[in-house]
């Protein structure tokens, strides 16, 4: 038996799976299958791959595709170190396109290619508009596969970038299947630590909207230019905008 009144009493205060009722000591069938569905979708999101032709088409014609040294998803999951290193051939290709002082925009699959596929086009467009207005020179967008956050360091270094802006799929949770995070790293080069980055996370339709995320990223980059650094030394003090439905 389910207990609808208990569900109503508790569920209005939380998105957690409260008030599920019980059958014996177990969850009722509907609640059990709701969970299985959420987990199945999260698993599929982890193992999904970017649709490169579709992504290239929406990002514009100058996209540079690069790979990490993790040859497939299993290697990616088992060896985070390989996901942080560029494939040797791709390092040379990037170096040929170096634009000293630019901002490098990187779209990376991370742990959720489907989330990136859905949100990177609008997010990249919003970022390009804001950053161009702030006077930044933008390198052609880079799309990186089997990529960890720190792969951006090597990409940025190869391009001679002043800063790298990495849009990357976040690990899917049961209730957030499509989250993208932005990591900003000033003077990117291999060996940067996570303490030297700023992160804007939970960018998704039910979380932080793309316009708001782009506004925060632009604020942080402007502050990083003044400070000459990102990371723990740079606190996000960008003015809060009123909560609006995400765009």
């Amino acid at each position: 038996m389910t207990t609808p009144s208990l569900w109503r009493d508790l569920r209005r205060f939380t998105t957690a799976r409260v008030g599920l009722g019980r059958v014996g000591h177990a969850q009722p069938t509907a609640a059990h299958l709701d969970f299985q569905e959420a987990h199945a979708r999260a698993r599929d999101a982890v193992w999904s791959a970017l649709d490169m032709p579709a992504l290239t088409a929406v990002l514009g014609g100058h996209v540079v595709a690069v790979r990490s040294q993790a040859e497939d998803r299993r290697a990616y999951l088992l060896r985070p170190d390989l996901g942080r290193r560029l494939h040797a051939e791709d390092r040379d290709a990037l170096a040929a396109k170096a634009m000293p002082g630019c901002v490098a925009l990187v779209v990376a699959d991370g742990l959720c290619a489907t989330g990136v596929q859905a949100q990177a086009p609008a997010l990249a467009a919003a970022l390009r508009e804001r950053l161009a207005a702030d006077g930044w020179v933008l390198a052609p967008p880079v799309v990186a596969t089997q990529a960890r956050v720190a792969l951006g360091d090597e990409i940025g270094a190869a391009l001679g970038a002043a800063a790298v802006v990495m849009m990357i799929g976040e690990r899917p949770g049961l209730s957030a299947l499509d989250s993208v995070g932005i990591y900003l790293t000033w003077a990117p080069r291999p060996g940067r630590t996570d303490a030297e980055r700023n992160c804007i996370s939970n960018i998704r339709p039910a979380g932080l909207g793309v316009q708001e995320a782009a506004r925060k990223a632009a604020w942080l980059l402007a502050a990083a230019r003044r400070l000459g650094a990102t990371g723990v030394a740079l606190k996000d003090e960008s003015p809060n905008t009123p909560a609006l439905p995400s765009s």
């Binding site: 799976r17 599920l20 019980r22 987990h39």
Partner: peptide, 25 residues
């Protein structure tokens, strides 16, 4: 014991309150 085994803050799955009932039973 986490509601429905789904920790909505830490985004991982642990054992549910129901799992505790099961194990005790």
């Amino acid at each position: 014991g986490v509601p429905g085994a789904d920790d909505v803050m830490l985004a991982y799955q642990s054992t549910s309150f129901h799992d505790g009932l099961y194990a005790r039973a």
